[in-house]
Computed example of a mutant assay.
Amino acid sequence: MTAEPGERGGGGLIIFLNGTSSSGKSSIAKALLDVLGDTYFHMPVDAFHAMRTGPRLPPDELAAMLERTWRGFHRAVAGMAAAGNNVVVDHLFSEPWRLRDCLALFTPQDVVLVGVRCSLPELERRELARGDRPAGLAARQFDRVHAHGVYDVECDTERSSAADCARQIVDFLPRRPRPTAFERMRAESGTPLTGAPKAH
C-alpha cells in the first residue's frame, strides 16, 4: 500500500533543523513557533547543555559527559513525540553516531528533516559577530553536518530571512512526500527502530 503525502505514524511531528553553528537554526525555530497552526515545543540542544552544573571536567570526562547529554537529548525528543507532542528540534549531525541514534529512536514518517544551509564565509562572519562560539567551530562542522545528503526540505539563511524559511517549511508540511528522508535513510542503513516508550 502506497503511503499518502503527509501521512503520519501516530505520534507528534518532529521538525528537525540540522545545520552548523551560526547557520540560523534557532532563529528559524522561533519564527516557526509564530506561524505553525498547532501547539509545538521548541527543543534546542543548547538548552540541555545549559542545564548542566558541577565542576570543570578534564577533556576525556567532558567528552563522555557531552555524549551522554546528546543521547539523553535524543531520547527526550523521542519521548515528547511518542507522547503525542509536536516538537521543533534545533540540533546538528556533526558526528555520524548522532544521526544513527536518531534514526533508531524517531518514528521515521513523523520526522521532517530540514537542512539549514549557509556559505562558510557567511558562517565565519556570523561567528565572529556573535562572539559566543569558539573560533572555527562552524568551519570544523561544515563538511560533516550535511554529509548524509538527504533532506525533506532545505533552507538557505544567507538568501532568505528566518521568517521566510519558516514559511517555506510550513508551506511544505501538508504536501511532504513519502518516503520521508528518515524513512529512506533507515531503509538504506538497516537501522533497527528502537523508539521511545509510548505514553499510556
Rank of each mutant, 00 (worst) to 15 (best):
A3N: 10
P5L: 07
L13I: 10
I14F: 04
I15N: 05
I15W: 05
S21L: 07
S27E: 08
K30F: 11
L33Q: 14
M43V: 13
V45T: 08
V45F: 11
V45S: 08
D46W: 05
H49E: 09
R56L: 13
L62P: 01
L62K: 14
M65Y: 10
L66D: 15
G72D: 09
H74R: 05
V77W: 04
A78P: 03
N85A: 12
N86S: 02
N86T: 02
V88N: 06
D90T: 06
H91N: 10
F93M: 08
S94P: 00
S94D: 11
S94V: 04
E95Q: 13
P96K: 12
P96E: 12
W97M: 04
L99R: 00
R100V: 06
C102V: 02
L105P: 01
L105I: 05
P108A: 13
Q109V: 14
D110P: 11
G115Q: 12
C118R: 04
S119R: 10
L120D: 07
P121G: 09
E124A: 06
R126P: 09
E127G: 04
L128H: 06
G131R: 00
G131Q: 03
G131K: 02
G131M: 02
A138L: 08
Q141W: 11
Q141A: 13
F142K: 02
V145H: 00
V150Q: 04
D152K: 06
D156N: 15
D156H: 09
D156V: 07
E158Q: 13
R159I: 01
C165H: 09
R167A: 15
I169C: 08
D171V: 05
P174D: 01
R175Q: 05
P179Y: 01
F182N: 14
S189F: 01
G190V: 04
P192G: 09
A199H: 08
